[in-house]
Design a protein around this nucleic acid. Structure first.
Lengths: 343, 343
DNA sequence: TTGAAAGCGCTAACAG
DNA sequence: CTGTTAGCGCTTTCAA
């Protein structure tokens, strides 16, 4: 004979089900379900009875059962490359706050700037049948792209707008952000210019900024005199050591563009300690507009990215689409050049 | 007549189910289930047939259905107070990496250092029937505690060991960490000492560090000469402005202890810019051992907390318990005093 | 080594 | 406004 599980009511596992609430309230499970999900068309008196019964029993809904029955999960998969600096946590805060208001839950994945890892994450996450996806960047493996399209739930690619989106994109043009700094350097009359970055093969947005930066220089007849890139994640320390190394080899450098603010502040710290006059002897600039650049003894010249806002808007676009509303395909939230004291 | 949904095979929604894989492979759904979950006792030939069928159809398992049927989710709820500085993202990276190896998924919640928000989060998350919980700190509302206990899945409280754990705890003694700095200041012969922090009512671990710090001073017959606390989250900027304000009011101060490294580095930046000699004229110390303190022109005196390790170990303890292994109730991962150049 | 039956806890659809 | 019926896609249990 097949198993006949004991009725839930007698379960050793004291989990309270809709059915028990229904029994106690003297109504059907459907009515309980309606009340608990605030559906219309239930008499006020019935509502009260049901709520009382649910409270008395300490009922906790089972989202798994609900999601399976309705074919709708309140889950949104969020995939970011790293939590190693403050940039993506800030984006996550924006995402999280907005999703929460819409009654959705973020499930997080971290790729380590590895597209194959991203592909594996997407494959795994597919099993949750998420309501939507927020992924970082516009570059993915072909299979990742295919899986995301096949999932037929909305996808927002964040941070970048230089490229083609799978579905929606919310970010800024990194090429343009880099170009602005290149032109600024050129207009300042800086000539011997270096670049200090991390791993450009992995961080494609940093690569786009550098590309834009070089275009900005080229527009004024300039070119990069030195360039360093370690196969390591960007960090304050790397910025510091890489700048020191570059200056040892190219002592005549007049300016350095860094892949981001972490790197740039690291470089600035080197200059402060080594007694290198900034910006007189060496001009510096970064990207992101982090707080550390603002409170440094010299305000860092940089480009501010709207990180929290990118997260918030990405989540809102997703919510809009889930509500059946139209949502803009590409949202360029722009950036602001920060004319600081280091360049 | 009740709805009669079209059979899944003809569904407009092309979702492939176990049943379709089974049909194609010429076996029962149970056999497919066994193969796909790598259960023993399936003939090698059958395995191959099933795998081929699954691949051909592009089968994607439905975790919701699986979890409902087996009463087991691979979800772990992780609740942290904030992603506003790099501390908790680092903890999350540690958690995430270890959970992933164990086949578990983190679902994140952010409390904003608000215990009522935490309570609401726990209540909501309960509906996922998570396999385990990682929550921050040892202080929670009575109802949060009750819900977590009632969930009957393992709970790890992270960061702190000064108090009583619900189930397991992984962290360090903040009281001891504060005390070490207090004694260091005293031994250095510093006498007029101030404290600059954020909101101690919300950040209870910062409050414990301050308590330990004052004990350390008291052991040498000293007491705090000044103390500032804004009802705001700690930040580089707050550290900078709060120190400036404190020095304006207490110009004779010889040393300042900050609630953490963000605050302390902010303070250090103020000194660098204002030309205040550190540590000669003013000694500074913080807490956490962040990279920014290490690359500053003066290495920050601080106490290093094992953030990534706390996350990793917390996840491992959870995994151990889910595997039915015993796991240590309280794990004190300790801290390291960093004898920097600012105190 | 494989399969059949039952059911996890909930919601959609329809009937009244 | 409320109830009935069927079934979401999977795994458990037991039998063969």
């Amino acid at each position: 004979m097949p198993r006949s599980r004991p009725p839930a009511k007698a379960d050793a596992d004291h989990t309270v089900t809709l059915e028990q609430v229904a029994a106690r309230a003297g109504v059907s499970t459907m009515t309980v379900s309606r009340v608990l999900r605030n559906r219309a068309n239930v008499a006020e008196k019935t509502r009260d009875k049901v709520r009382a019964a649910a409270a008395a029993l300490g009922y906790v809904p089972n989202l798994l059962a609900g999601a399976l029955a309705s074919a709708r999960t309140p889950l949104v998969v969020v995939i970011v490359p790293s939590l190693g600096n403050i940039v993506f946590p800030e984006v996550l805060q924006g995402i999280n706050a907005a999703l929460e208001e819409g009654g959705l839950q973020a499930v997080m994945g971290i790729t380590g700037y590895d597209q194959d890892k991203e592909e594996r994450l997407v494959e795994t996450m597919l099993s949750w049948r998420p309501a939507g996806w927020i992924v970082t960047g516009l570059e993915h493996t072909a299979r990742t792209r295919q899986m995301l399209r096949g999932a037929r739930s909305p996808v927002v690619e964040i941070m970048d707008t230089d490229g083609k989106a799978i579905d929606m994109a919310v970010g800024l043009s990194h090429r343009a952000a880099g170009r602005v700094v290149g032109e600024h350097f050129a207009r300042r009359g800086l000539r011997r210019i270096g670049y200090v970055g991390g791993d450009l093969v992995r961080d494609l947005r940093a690569a786009k900024r550098l590309q834009g930066f070089e275009q900005g220089l080229a527009a004024h007849g300039l070119a990069l005199a030195a360039r360093s890139g370690a196969p390591a994640p960007s960090s304050l320390r790397l910025g510091r050591t890489a700048l020191a190394a570059m200056l040892a080899e190219h002592p005549a450098l007049e300016a350095v563009y860094f892949s981001n603010d972490d790197m740039a502040v690291g470089g600035l710290m080197h200059c402060l300690q080594a007694g290198i006059a900034v910006p007189g002897r060496l001009a510096l600039a970064g990207f992101n507009g982090l707080e550390i650049g603002e409170v440094a003894p010299l305000r860092l010249t940089t480009v501010r990215s709207p990180r929290h806002e990118i997260g918030r808007v990405a989540a809102l676009r997703l919510l809009a689409r889930l509500d059946g509303r139209e949502a803009q395909a590409v949202t360029d939230l722009g950036f602001a050049f920060v004319d600081g004291q280091t360049a």
